[in-house]
């Protein structure tokens, strides 16, 4: 499936979902002629129209790209297929941080985040890995909690240990 077709189908699904959600917007006594539902409905229709063009272009294999973009596309095609799973893995570590933060607290979570990303990005498994993680945890905690005065979560575990 080429990029135009895939993105066209994805946008078509988005337009459909958005239109469905727009239909649930309630009316109000203060409504003007256009109303709160007006713009969302127009946008859903517009996106569906643009998505259909992309789908048709994808099906016909019509590529409206510049000569430079052709070259770029050739480079893109050379990208390994593992790129998306790898990028998703990166994102997953970020998501794990969000889950861990209320439990482990900020300094521990941020240290684990730095170590996990470094490992994921193939850092050497030597003394520098824990050193960088601990340094990062302390540095960010000092920067945000002390210097900027932003109370990052102390975490259930951290609070239990010190209470």
């Amino acid at each position: 499936m080429n990029k135009d077709l895939a993105s066209g189908l994805l946008l078509l699904a988005l337009a459909g979902g958005y239109f469905w959600a727009a239909e649930t917007i309630p009316n109000s006594m203060l409504d003007d002629a256009f109303g709160p539902r007006g713009l969302p409905v127009v946008l859903a229709g517009l996106l569906a129209f643009l998505a259909l063009i992309l789908v048709l272009r994808g099906v016909a294999g019509l590529r409206t790209v510049t000569a430079d973009a052709v070259a770029n596309d050739e480079e893109d095609d050379g990208e390994p297929d593992a790129a998306l799973p790898r990028a998703l893995g990166f994102l997953l570590i970020g998501a794990a941080y969000v889950v861990a933060l209320p439990w482990l607290g900020y300094p521990v979570s941020i240290a684990l985040l730095i170590a996990s990303i470094a490992l994921y990005e193939r850092a050497r498994r030597d003394w520098r890995l824990p050193a960088a993680a601990i340094f990062g945890g302390v540095l960010f905690w000092l920067l945000f909690n002390k210097l900027l005065g932003v109370a990052q979560p102390s975490g259930v575990l951290f609070s239990a240990l010190f209470s």
């Binding site: 970020g94 730095i114 470094a118 850092a123 520098r128 993680a133 990062g136 960010f140």
Partner: peptide, 30 residues
């Protein structure tokens, strides 16, 4: 580069939390 990536992601996620002290915002950025 692996350490730079780790520190930059830590800066992004920490910075976003400062906006409204909301983990929802951090998830939204992801």
């Amino acid at each position: 580069r692996p350490y730079l990536a780790g520190f930059i992601l830590a800066l992004i996620l920490s910075g976003v939390y400062t906006l409204d002290h909301s983990l929802f915002h951090v998830g939204f950025v992801l």
